[in-house]
Design a protein around this nucleic acid. Sequence first.
DNA 1: GTGGTCTAGACCACC
DNA 2: GTGGTCTAGACCACT
Lengths: 128, 128, 128, 128
Amino acid sequence: MLEIDLKSRIPIYKQIYNQIEELALKGVLKPDDQILSVRQLARLVGINPNTITKAYRELELNNIIYSIAGKGSFISPDLTLVSMSKKRKVFINLTEEINQAKNIGIQKQQIFEIVSQVYDTKSEVENK
Amino acid sequence: MLEIDLKSRIPIYKQIYNQIEELALKGVLKPDDQILSVRQLARLVGINPNTITKAYRELELNNIIYSIAGKGSFISPDLTLVSMSKKRKVFINLTEEINQAKNIGIQKQQIFEIVSQVYDTKSEVENK
Amino acid sequence: MLEIDLKSRIPIYKQIYNQIEELALKGVLKPDDQILSVRQLARLVGINPNTITKAYRELELNNIIYSIAGKGSFISPDLTLVSMSKKRKVFINLTEEINQAKNIGIQKQQIFEIVSQVYDTKSEVENK
Amino acid sequence: MLEIDLKSRIPIYKQIYNQIEELALKGVLKPDDQILSVRQLARLVGINPNTITKAYRELELNNIIYSIAGKGSFISPDLTLVSMSKKRKVFINLTEEINQAKNIGIQKQQIFEIVSQVYDTKSEVENK
DNA sequence: GTGGTCTAGACCACC
DNA sequence: GTGGTCTAGACCACT
């Protein structure tokens, strides 16, 4: 289900966060789907459960999953809201960065190349 | 000299910042050139001097201009350093943002549209 | 938490900036700690919220804090980087300023006095 | 009279500026003393006259010398004013830098060491 | 509630 | 004249 790169500069908990978020926002995981428990996932990917807990905590803070004590963790039902607000953020940030690029004289064409390069390579898990 | 869009969702001070940065980094404004005073520019574009001050302050913090109380504001002499370090940052951030956009399912085409929208805004310098 | 001297020739926003920077870089405030909101701090020290905003803005531009509209302001997680690059800068600038002082005939003793004056200002953290 | 370091990162005109300023502020050159003409000094130190001109122009702008067409250049009579305002600036900058040093946890003792190091080495011409 | 932006108007020191 | 600081009060979007 998940791929962890132990050598990456991206913290492991963030890699887990990003992949679950992506699966949820893209609809692979449906609302109210139960996801693996902290311990199950920890065993599966061979990572300390505390790290998984940290990822789940952040996912819960951002309303991507919800956890019920004694039962498990589930995908939030109101993901469209999350998705919308996240999309808005990305749009704003992207516009800002493109503006910066324009300011220093980078050509439109160069940006198209970066875009193509990102979209035409395998999925990366870069996030912030 | 500058064009302000009061209806834009980009803050006024940021619009001013962007345009002066662009003029400076592209070399239209030369090192040690004096730029309009806070009050002059405020009168010219019809907005509050505090808003101009905010833009100038930010420009100064980023070493794009320097201000001398009682004398005026001037283009920094060492813009190549700014430009170099900025170029690196912009490439990194841009790639990261595009990656995020991809991760949440935004299509390549939509990004091209944002790019075009930013680049096709009229601008005094955009004539190459 | 903070002490403001309204009669000081150092601007209020700079006093606030300095004290929060000091608390953050010395590790009293930990990464991701939430700090007082603009309005809370304004009420606490009895000055205008805009002045606090100015201090926080500067702290954010220098990556010492980060602010999220609607949530609050927090200590940056990557303070070691800030601290490192800042240390280099301070050493260079300090040496340069001392050199200038020497060049215009200021005595060593006078500089020692300034240093003592700055360091012997009461401060919550100055207890080592 | 003057020492020029062609390999220094400090611009030659600035080196000349600094040394004449130092001689004037320390009283080695007295008010209304005539200094070498641009051409004389250029020949003496083996530098292009344009560079000397630039140094003299800045000295005149800062009221350290005054030039009379056809007669030559002279040390300003009101150097105490210059000296005072320059001293004030240095005091302010120095205080600011020491504050910064304090903020990142540099000890008083370390600053004393830098001061001693600067004062106990031969005169440097560092300036900004 | 939060931070972000903007205005209007004031006073200061420096040039 | 210049930039720098500060106040008082307003509106916005987001949580």
